[in-house]
Amino acid sequence: MTPGDTSAAPPILEVRDIGKTYGSILALRGVSASVGAGEVLCVLGDNGAGKSTFIKILSGAHAHTHGKLLAYGVERTFGSPREALDLGIATVYQDLAVVPLMPVWRNFFLGSELTRGFGPFSQLDVKGMRRITKEELAKMGIDLRDVDQPIGTLSGGERQSVAIARAVYFGAKVVILDEPTSALGVKQAGVVLKYIAQARDRGLGVVFITHNPHHAYPLGDRFLLLKRGTSLGGFKKSEITIEEMTKLMAGGAELDALAHELARA
């Protein structure tokens, strides 16, 4: 956070010196970051760095115990994911919350189906849902031949993109993406990164959690580096290079030691 950074509109989501303890265990402490409309905040960290705890606080799954969480400049403590969702903060988890055997459009609207008619006679607006699904996916640059195919037949990258498009359609202002590229091959990961950029260009705030600096660096506007439950600092893109980031994440000295160990005698 640089002091001269205060623009007129407050960021959609901001945390100040936030922390979380589970009983006597300090899972996260002293983390500050923010994300505004059309921005990508990358949260980087190795396994056990506190990324999951950070997501859980932002998404409303767990309430924070220290520091402040602000949404649109107003201080909040989320009691449930529903509260976060109502403020337009949506989380896309690694398992994507999709049902593989169901058609794409049914997955897109699952839990928030459009209906016509009243009371016991209300039925699904199938045509409308098919059309909207196709349109919304097209906006993300995904051209599906058939929205009736089971979502399980899509590639990992496409499924990820459908999940993002769904969050956007249902009013997300910020999407939190939990390791969207970690299970994907190089090519598929590239596809997802492209969709994330597309979402950003449409004015969405994106919190992109990853352990891969090579995925984060080209996309991010700001970077938050976590290690062992604490922040190594927040950086703007202009303030850090990818090499510095990698070194910081792994712990520079440790990486040097490793390089020494692995080097041929």
């Binding site: 049902v99 055997l101 169901m102 049914r106 609207f109 699952l110 839990g111 189906e113 209906t115 209300s122 039925q123 699904l124 199938v126």
Partner: peptide, 10 residues
């Protein structure tokens, strides 16, 4: 054709 049906599959 109903939400309930969608939920049964889900």
């Amino acid at each position: 054709r109903t939400r309930s049906g969608n939920w049964i599959f889900a």
